[in-house]
Amino acid sequence: MSNLSEFENIADAGQETAPIWINDLTVAYHRKPVLWDVNLVLPEGKLVAVIGPNGAGKSTLIKAILGLVPKATGDIRIYGRSYEAQRRLVGYVPQRESVDWDFPVSATDVVAMGLYGKIGWLKPVSRRHREQAVEELRKVGMEAYADRQISQLSGGQQQRVFLARALAQDAQVYFMDEPFAGVDVATEKAIVALLKELKTAGKTCVVVHHDLQTVTTYFDHVVLLNMRVVAAGPVEEVFTEENLKKTYGGKLTLLSQALHKYAQQPGIGTGGAKGGHR
């Protein structure tokens, strides 16, 4: 038991101040284990890449933090308080495929959605809000497309619209789900410039990333994830070949098989006494 409490002391550090503090997070949905016992503390004002192989639970980690998928166990704090209490501090850029791009709205309309929280119930979107939305579009180099229906935009342009919407939220912590996936060079450059700008402004950005080549140039902090956190910390310390091998290597097959079997049990979620003796 002594080991357990020691460990909890370590985890307690940063609980009050860190922008993101996660303890013991487990997520299993559709009967597949996705995250297992994740403990994570992320520092403020850093660009954090979350990397790992396909199916490692990168997106799920973000969704669990944002309360979009139910968690089996675990405690998540944003600046020391629950996410529900700190919603205004959090901006979110979902995966591009998560919405229907044929939806009858223009780029400005989508960006203005980031302001809905400020506008509040029932009040319509005013001219001032729309102007602000266009302003955010300008920041991502998209002001020329402000009135385009979103289906007429290219993939990279759609991604930039989503980024502008997150900017409109004016948050402290940003979560971005694969913003670099399938975008053109111009968009990639725009996103990187934007990330740097956000960092200068003291914001924390957590970015799900899939391109190992660019991790060292784009980010200063990295989380290596494969169902569990393999390693987390500053890029120069953590982004090592050994850690990458652990994350991407085939070693996890046995564990993932067992976890799968565990989650296939009809009664997952409630059964099982915790703790016990060694």
Binding site: N3, L4, F7, W36, D37, N39, R228, V230, K246, K251, L252, L255, A258, L259, K261, Y262, Q265, G272, K274, G276, R278
Partner: peptide, 20 residues
Amino acid sequence: QMGFCDAEAHYSAHQLEHVT
């Protein structure tokens, strides 16, 4: 093999033992 020692490993092992 995986570098998860400490309490985490015990907790995981505790759940996995039932399906092994």
